[in-house]
Design a protein around this nucleic acid. Structure first.
Lengths: 242, 242
DNA sequence: TCTGGGTACGTACTCACGGTATGTGAGTGC
DNA sequence: GCACTCACATACCGTGAGTACGTACCCAGA
């Protein structure tokens, strides 16, 4: 049996401010419902997780039907990806904003660290990007996305800090350091936000990272080169305590 | 209609070595099918991921039915958890084995780092623990598990290294440092195993971490205290190149 | 040796959920 | 005013997790 006629429900969800929009009414409505879908999806994915957030619940929350959803997105994963990208780009912008104006690399690093720690404590970032991202998108796609947003910021900062030392790093090594710091801060951020005293925990993390950076500085001052070969062995000798 | 009688299929999957096992035949058979389920599940979860690995496929692979599965496990998630625990404990054992005999903290750290990097490149560890773990188990449960296995090793190493310096660290700070290193190495491990030249990438990671540890050592030698307060500000001053 | 009980499954089913096929009316360009 | 298409709504399907229930086999006790 074909679908019943049914009274029209195509009413504008948001009237659309007549300010700058040069799009037609149809386009405005369409964009509005699409945004509504992403909004609701973001909330439900954050609260329930990807698997537990059903499409029925999402479309109900956006007051549309699955037809609308599948018109705008190719499936559940694509919807998640849209949410993911928005959360990511928001995070990236927040970090860049914190970096604005900072010129000294160490100051920049500290500001970036604080901004990153703040971001990583947002429930939506934790859940959607860190927790569910890798398993829903697959690690490859996840990494691609990260690469050109939040991770790019970290790479920037690390580049600034390390090039401020006496060494000239090659790109691969820079990437490695950036990966290490990125992972360190992600993990630290998780532990901060799941701590019972997040403020104190955040301070500890800042202290720890700052300490590591201080170590860099000390090595730079002492003109210690980055060992390029196998491991620490070459210039490091058998290092006892002191 | 009630289920048809059906010919018996309860044949031993593994005859059971009569060596040490003091259990009855029934118990042996039971344990055998349970192990078979976990084996197949581990493989399928690793290859396909949690969501894409259906229970039907798993039980078919283990040549049993869902009845058997639900007799041994309360559900899909419980099965995953069993797999998770096994992978985790294997990893933990591998790391502990690498640490055996090492007395010098720095040597111990390097050995632990190498072992961890090796573990984190195993597909099953990457997929089941790092990738799917947090989203399937939920971050809390995931963390609990990690806390008493792989992370415990890292904490151990960090404790040894940091206490080898001139500082006496309080427990919270140790945990923070351990978290940071744990995250750093997880992330680094991921990047290593998804690199097109994993060996070179692993070397870079070792170099980077060793360099960070060298920084620690330099600070220890210079009797630099761990700043307890807010940030690096105090002793750091505006550090230009050199 | 027989028998009752409990363990270790097998079978058939339900229900929720992601995805699809198809219909339809409001906008839009002409 | 009219055809056409876009932006949805409706009804349906397949799959897969979980469940209810039945049964064969093992083992302990009499």
């Amino acid at each position: 049996m074909p679908p019943k006629p049914s009274v029209s429900k195509l009413v504008p969800k948001v009237p659309g401010v007549p300010g700058v929009s040069g799009a037609s009414r149809r386009q405005q409505y369409s964009a509005s419902t699409k945004r509504a879908l992403v909004d609701v999806a973001e909330e439900l994915f954050t609260d329930l997780g990807y698997a537990a957030a059903s499409l029925d619940t999402i479309v109900a929350g956006a007051r549309v039907t699955k037809g609308a959803l599948y018109h705008h997105f190719s499936g559940k994963q694509a919807l998640f990806e849209a949410v993911f990208e928005r959360v990511e780009s928001d995070a990236s912008r927040a970090i860049q904003k914190a970096l604005r104006g900072k010129k000294d690399p160490w100051e920049k690093a500290l500001a970036g660290l604080q901004a990153f720690l703040a971001v990583v404590q947002e429930p939506r970032y934790r859940r959607i990007v860190i927790q569910e991202g890798p398993s829903v998108l697959g690690y490859e796609r996840f990494r691609e996305q990260e690469e050109r947003s939040t991770f790019a910021n970290v790479l920037d900062i690390v580049r600034a800090v390390l090039n401020a030392g006496t060494w000239e790093l090659e790109e691969d090594m820079l990437q490695t350091f950036a990966r290490i710091f990125f992972g360190a801060m992600s993990s630290a951020g998780e532990s901060v936000s799941s701590s019972e005293d997040p403020i104190a925990a955040a301070e500890r993390v800042e202290t720890a990272i700052a300490f590591i950076l201080q170590g860099f500085q000390a090595l730079a001052d002492a003109d210690v080169p980055l060992p390029g070969g196998t491991a620490v062995g070459a210039g490091g000798d058998a290092a006892e305590t002191s």
